[in-house]
């Protein structure tokens, strides 16, 4: 007998999200955002390492990308959470991690670490391609003006590379929102585990998984709107348009990122 789809369960999950669900949703979002931010930072560092004058750094950066992109993310998550503790002989990831006023469960921290490391390898490729896309004459001009390599990179090359980096970065974050669901397997109570818990107690897989799919879809749709808006602003600044109200707000409130995003390149 085919079980009938019980619409009221599905609607209830969407229209009346409970408190536990809201926390799970929030956890999914902040894990994705943090892992993406750290992933971009790791990607930048490893991209610069791979473009370094020093062979050792190039090799290290290359190994990182090779190993991380060549292994499944779920294996990396398990390795960090379960494996690393045994491997290192001490608790890399304690049960709870206190960060001043907030304390996070060890699983959440391990999850963020694993996803950041994974993301960094993919961002490394994207950032390197972005830097490569900037005309070599830009760095030569910077150097000819007496700028050391690092300053030229930061002030001249990276702001122009940002234009190329932002669209694929948006796709990466879309992926990240969904990949957080794998953290359910190390016990992080996020969207997917919330659905799984309800499924286990009711044996209504279709309703609960359809509902959680809807919520993931909501997250990615909202993100795609934000992404389009950011890319629109980038395109506008490429044309040398006047700063819009929001760009000026960003300039005023975000001292460093303001340059990287708002005025990035033509």
């Amino acid at each position: 007998m085919i079980a009938a789809f019980e619409w009221h369960i599905f609607w209830d999950r969407i229209v009346h999200p409970d408190h536990v669900f809201a926390q799970a949703l929030w956890r999914t979002v902040y894990i994705a955002v943090l892992a993406q931010v750290f992933g971009v930072a790791l990607g930048l560092v490893s991209a610069l390492m791979r473009m370094s004058r020093f062979r050792v750094l190039r090799i290290l950066g290359g190994m990182y990308v090779l190993v991380v992109r060549g292994t499944p993310v779920i294996v990396q998550i398990f390795f960090i959470y379960f494996g690393a503790n045994l491997f290192l002989g001490f608790d890399l990831v304690p049960r709870t991690v206190g960060l001043g006023p907030v304390s996070l469960s060890g699983a959440v921290v391990a999850g963020i670490v694993a996803l950041s490391i994974n993301e960094g390898a993919y961002m490394s490729e994207i950032i390197r391609a972005g830097i490569d896309s900037v005309d070599k004459g830009q760095m030569e001009a910077a150097r000819s003006l007496g700028m050391p390599h690092g300053l030229g990179m930061r002030r001249i090359v990276l702001p122009q590379a940002a234009r190329v980096i932002v669209p694929p970065l948006g796709n990466e974050f879309n992926n990240m929102l969904k990949t957080t669901s794998l953290l359910a397997f190390i016990g992080v109570y996020e969207l997917f585990l919330d659905a799984d818990v309800h499924y286990s107690s009711t044996f209504k897989p279709s309703e609960y998984f359809a509902a959680v799919a809807f919520w993931y879809l909501m997250l990615t749709v909202i993100w795609s709107v934000i992404q389009a808006w950011i890319e629109g602003r980038l395109a506008a600044s490429e044309r040398g348009d006047q700063l819009s109200f929001w760009e000026r707000v960003r300039e005023a409130w975000a001292p460093v990122p303001g340059r990287l995003w708002g005025r990035a390149a033509r």
Binding site: D135, G137, Q138, E140, A141, A142, R143, S144, L145, G146, M147, P148, R155, I156, P159, Q160, S237, R263, A264, A265, R266
Partner: peptide
């Protein structure tokens, strides 16, 4: 880099910084 401060260079393809205005290009260094 310090030595290059004493030596100005003008390139065939200008190599102005496209994300900066004319003035910003000049004051940057």
């Amino acid at each position: 880099a310090r030595q290059r401060c004493e030596i100005g260079m003008v390139f065939q393809r200008f190599n102005l910084f496209p994300h900066m205005t004319a003035l910003e290009n000049i004051i940057e260094a």
